[in-house]
Design a protein around this nucleic acid. Sequence first.
DNA 1: TTGTAGGCGTTATCAG
DNA 2: CTGATAACGCCTACAA
Lengths: 325, 325
Amino acid sequence: MANIREIAKLAGVSVTTVSRVLNDHPYVSEEKKSAVYKAMEELNYNRNIKAIQLSKGISNMIGVVLPTIEHPYFSRIVEGIAEEAIKHHLQIVLFQTNYETSKELDALELLRGNLMDGLVFCSRAISFDTLNEYKEHGPIILCEDSDQEEFPTISIPHEQAFKFGLEYLISKGHTRIAYSLGRKEGTNSTKRRKAYENKMREINQPLRDEWFFDQCLSIKDGQQIGRKYMNVKEKPTAILVSNDQVAAGLLLEANELKLKIPEDLAVLSFDNQPISEAMHISTIEIPIIEMGRMAVTSIINSKNKTNSTDKKITLPFRLVERSTV
Amino acid sequence: MANIREIAKLAGVSVTTVSRVLNDHPYVSEEKKSAVYKAMEELNYNRNIKAIQLSKGISNMIGVVLPTIEHPYFSRIVEGIAEEAIKHHLQIVLFQTNYETSKELDALELLRGNLMDGLVFCSRAISFDTLNEYKEHGPIILCEDSDQEEFPTISIPHEQAFKFGLEYLISKGHTRIAYSLGRKEGTNSTKRRKAYENKMREINQPLRDEWFFDQCLSIKDGQQIGRKYMNVKEKPTAILVSNDQVAAGLLLEANELKLKIPEDLAVLSFDNQPISEAMHISTIEIPIIEMGRMAVTSIINSKNKTNSTDKKITLPFRLVERSTV
DNA sequence: TTGTAGGCGTTATCAG
DNA sequence: CTGATAACGCCTACAA
């Protein structure tokens, strides 16, 4: 592989001049410029980007950490990240962690090793304490509704949104409301659970284990809920589920079980993914793509200003009324 | 940022020794080793991965090119790629192109610039001629069923699979068969179309424009087909659609239109994504995850051997009979 | 077991 | 306009 020095030699100029030509600097005579181009042609020259990056001390890469790319929620975030990243000539490095902290650490180590300019955690298993150890090595953006002050976050207000969903169901005459969450421990899920418990206390409803469905993320999980529902002794009249996938699964299973939605069971979900429109699912929209986009701008902002301005960005949610409530 | 030289100075050893400690080389005395560790601790040392990569001439990164990450087919391929990549300590760089050749070129340019060890094209818009210009810069793997000899490919035999699907429908008594494709121009779609035209000729059926639905990828597109179907004058009795998403949309719309599946219209699709199981859609399984996995191994093989062994890898497809045929 | 010196390929500084 | 020369941070013969 020919390098800049060989080009210089062949063209009869200095490496500086070659570099100038390469970078479209002014102040290079046309003759030398064409001599350089000719030499590059002859030697079949290719720039070495790694060398440029080392020399300049930049990367133009950001890491995106998520449990799996196969869930619509995450692929949608990445869609947004990719859209914004390309505007800034940033490349995206994907870390599919399956919520294994060791893999999340891999991403952090690469940030530490200066390979990436920043990291977006779409969801995480790793602790804030661990995260904190990597704080100095580059901007880390969290797509979750956490209250800590260390890292910028981008999210809808999950507690408020869940409360809003419950109130909507209540306004429709429901008091016996079940719910599902993605994973018990996550920041967002914790907020949702809190909202649920508060609201139930408020309307004097007991918390029933039977009415809570954990680990619900996919269509299959939604079908699961449908089957479990049949065995629930005290039936709820409504359910607020983790996301549209779960709602879709629940609807499909309900159809098989001759369960009428919303007459027997009202269903409200989150996200407003395409499938919810197709199945007429009432849902609370989360601006997922926008979240992805803003995660990138947030990283860029953190890079530019030493005092990162935007700490906690809260995006709006929105009720989309269709026919399952 | 402290570097290896400062560590050496503070620890009172040479840079070589520091490098040895860093890389777990043998033949370093315990005293020096701990002196180095101490110095690293004191100076808050972080390895610069870009420098290592430049020095060693490696990248440990592969690029993945696809139109959008938001479609289950592509996110599933990436899932497979990620699974295999992590075993080989390869990072994944995502190029979301929206089928714009300029963005596909970006990926190729980074390959040329030695930033990545190889490229996987999950789908592409760019021509073989252009691709060929980048052949020398690293392995390029195509996830499509093309017959060219220049690049390794990984795919099911699309023509054969489509023919198989048609024959299955015919064996169920159908002769009036419609079909849909993802995009007219793609390699895989071309094969499918060819299979369709051949088979129709074989059973003496005319080709009707009305029975062909182009640009069908999503649930929405499937619903579209349902609505268009109502206006088709000569009704087909079966349809072979591009993928499970389209089938799902078609089923949902059929339900609203009081169209009976499979009585009024039999539906067979491709992929065997989770949604097809949930909706009991008969489908021809494509080992998408496996495709992703093998794309990575193929890149690794191309790297190791100068004479790339596996040129065209053909994966098996499989009929999954459920209740839409 | 250790160190010196040169190389990876580019950019940046500064003097002409 | 041009060019030496020193970074960037690390690895690795080769020699000791």
